[in-house]
C-alpha cells in the first residue's frame, strides 16, 4: 500500500514536471521574426549591462557567452525581465508581456546550441571523416577515446553553436585559446618538450606534451622557450574536404552530446 502511494506521488510529480515544461514555452514561439524583434528591444534595454550582442557583459553576465546560463528556462528568463532579480542589479524592465517574450526569444536564439538545431547531413560519413581523412581524433577525445592535446569534444553539440563549430574548422584564430598554446621548450639538460601550455607564471610551467604526458617544469630548468602564435587546430577544412564532406562532418559534430 505504502509503495503504491509513493508510486502515485511520483507519477503525479512527473506529470506536474511535464506541465512545467509546457508552461515554460514562449507563447510567441521562437521564429526568426520574433527573435529579430527581440534583438531590437534587447539593444534598447539590455546592452548597458549585458554588452553588445550579449557577448561582453561589463556589469552583468554576458548572456550569450556563459554556458552556465544555458539551462535557464524561458519562464526563468521572462521572470527576470518582468520582475528583476532580487539582490542583484537586474531591475524589472517594465515592458509589455509580448515585448518581454520577444527578448526571451532573442536571448534563446543567442544560446541555441548546435544540438538544438543540428544541420542536415550524412552523420555516419561525418564520423568516418572525423576518424579518417579529417584526422580529428588524433588530437581530440570523444567519450574518452582519442588524442588529449586538443579540447574534449564529447559534448560539443550542446556547448557550441553550428556557427562556432564551422568557424573552428575554417577560420584561422589569431591566438590559440588559453591552455592550448603550442610551445617548444629546450631544457638546460639538452632535452626538449613540445606540447601545449596549460599554465605558466614566472616560476613554473605546466605543459601537456605531444606525447600526451604532463611535463611539470621549473623556470630555472629552461634554456629557452619558443611559442607558436598559430593554434595546432587546422583551419583549412573548407579546402581540405569536399563541400559535402564538410557538411557531413558538421552534421556529426553538431550531434555530439553527452
Amino acid at each position: 500500500m505504502f509503495r503504491a502511494i509513493v508510486l502515485i506521488i511520483l507519477l503525479a510529480a512527473a506529470a506536474w514536471a511535464q506541465r512545467g515544461v509546457q508552461r515554460n514555452t514562449n507563447p510567441l514561439g521562437s521564429s526568426p521574426e520574433v527573435a529579430t524583434a527581440g534583438r531590437a528591444l534587447y539593444n534598447q534595454n539590455c546592452t548597458n549591462c549585458h554588452g553588445l550582442d550579449a557577448t561582453a557583459g561589463d556589469r552583468a553576465p554576458a548572456l550569450a557567452a556563459q554556458r552556465s546560463y544555458n539551462r535557464t528556462s524561458d519562464q526563468d528568463l521572462f521572470d527576470a525581465l518582468t520582475k528583476g532579480i532580487p539582490g542583484t542589479g537586474m531591475p524589472a524592465l517594465g515592458l509589455s508581456t509580448d515585448d518581454s517574450w520577444r527578448i526571451v526569444a532573442y536571448i534563446r536564439s543567442l544560446r541555441a546550441s548546435a544540438a538544438d538545431f543540428p544541420p542536415k547531413g550524412d552523420v555516419a560519413q561525418g564520423e568516418a571523416i572525423y576518424n579518417g581523412k579529417g584526422e580529428c581524433s588524433t588530437c581530440h577525445t570523444i567519450g574518452g577515446r582519442g588524442g588529449l592535446i586538443g579540447p574534449d569534444l564529447t559534448n560539443l553539440g550542446a556547448r557550441s553553436s553550428v556557427r562556432r563549430i564551422r568557424e573552428a574548422l575554417t577560420v584561422a584564430k589569431p591566438h590559440p585559446p588559453a591552455g592550448y598554446r603550442p610551445v617548444t621548450v629546450h631544457l638546460k639538460d639538452g632535452s626538449m618538450v613540445r606540447g601545449v601550455l596549460k599554465n605558466e607564471n614566472n616560476f613554473s610551467l605546466q605543459i601537456l606534451g605531444t606525447d600526451d604526458q604532463l611535463h611539470l617544469l621549473s623556470s630555472n630548468e629552461i634554456e629557452r622557450m619558443v611559442r607558436d602564435d598559430a593554434s595546432l587546430m587546422p583551419s583549412d577544412y573548407d579546402t581540405r574536404l569536399a563541400a559535402e564532406e564538410l557538411t557531413n562532418l558538421l552534421a556529426y559534430l553538431s550531434r555530439l552530446v553527452r
Binding site: 546592452t47 548597458n48 561582453a56 561589463d58 542589479g89 589569431p174 591566438h175
Partner: peptide, 27 residues
C-alpha cells in the same frame, strides 16, 4: 570603446552610456 545614449535613473542604476571591450587583438 563604445558610446550610446542613456537616460539617468535615480536610485543607483548604471549610467555609463555603454562600455568597452578589451581588444582581442592585443596581448
Amino acid at each position: 570603446s563604445f558610446k550610446g545614449r542613456q537616460e539617468f535613473r535615480p536610485g543607483g542604476f548604471d549610467f555609463k552610456a555603454t562600455g568597452y571591450i578589451e581588444s582581442p587583438e592585443e596581448p
